[in-house]
């Protein structure tokens, strides 16, 4: 698993450098969540939606690790003519739904889960949303609907990296007490270290009944590269050659 994590993080770094793209921090915080899902949890008929579409590169690198897309395709990220844009595109093989504007992925997932439940199909729906998306009204509209209809086939993973676009979440609009808010909206709520594959697997596989499952995944924005961690500069900046080299070295050492 370390190999996959290392490769994904290295590719995120390399391609951000090459394409001069932003949102590295947001990509690095969800690597373990994606690895746990794609390598351990998702079955053939399950659906996965990345609602925080700005972390598209993390998803593309994971899809490459899973051999959904070719290296040539992955390397086209952010260049002219490619469909691998900076926000998730359904035109990329293996991608379920395009996102980019926050607060869209959860309603889509609720629709899919509702369809499966109505038709007594066993497909499950997994969606990753960001902590910034908690600001969106649609998040709460969807939660109310999902819990009212007991969508137990829906798993919502909140990438709680504590930093949104401009500042720390706590300084922008505090979302705490998050767990009790989610509980009061009728969800089964779990908290987990979002960088611990073993814990993630355990919670993701845990049987779920009567309510949608919400996993608050405590993560670190920019995880894996010391100078990017917990620094919202890396929501915007792309690495220069020196930062790329230092970052790649750190990743190789950490995930050897």
């Amino acid at each position: 698993m370390n190999k996959n994590i290392r490769n994904i993080r290295s590719n995120i770094l390399n391609l951000s450098f090459k394409a001069k793209s932003s949102h590295i921090g947001s990509c690095l915080s969800i690597v373990e969540i994606l690895v746990a899902l794609y390598f351990n949890v998702l079955k053939k008929n399950d659906r996965f939606i990345l609602s925080k579409g700005h972390a598209a590169l993390a998803l593309y690198c994971t899809l490459y690790e899973k051999k959904f897309i070719s290296l040539k395709n992955l390397n086209s990220f952010g260049s002219n003519k490619t469909t691998l844009m900076n926000h998730v595109s359904h035109k990329v093989k293996g991608v379920e739904f395009s996102t980019g504007s926050l607060g869209h992925g959860l309603p889509i997932s609720v629709g899919k889960a509702l369809k499966f439940k109505t038709n007594k199909e066993r497909n499950r729906v997994f969606v990753v949303i960001s902590d910034g998306e908690i600001n969106e009204g649609t998040t709460w509209e969807s939660l109310m609907f999902a819990s009212h209809h007991k969508l137990e086939n829906l798993t919502i993973i909140i990438d709680y990296n504590k930093i949104q676009s401009m500042d720390f979440v706590d300084k922008v609009i505090s979302i705490e007490p998050l767990k009790s808010k989610l509980l009061s909206f009728g969800c089964n709520v779990h908290e987990v270290n979002g960088h611990n594959i073993k814990s993630l697997k355990k919670i993701l596989k845990k049987k779920n009944k009567n309510k949608p499952k919400v996993i608050i995944a405590h993560t670190t924005k920019g995880k894996g590269i010391s100078f990017m961690e917990n620094n919202n500069l890396w929501h915007y900046k792309n690495p220069n050659k020196n930062e790329l080299d230092v970052g790649l070295k750190e990743i190789n050492n950490r995930y050897a």
Partner: peptide, 13 residues
């Protein structure tokens, strides 16, 4: 908003 997104989700299946 949830209604319209949800409708798209159902339609995508």
């Amino acid at each position: 908003q949830n209604m319209m997104g949800m409708a798209a989700g159902i339609a995508s299946e």
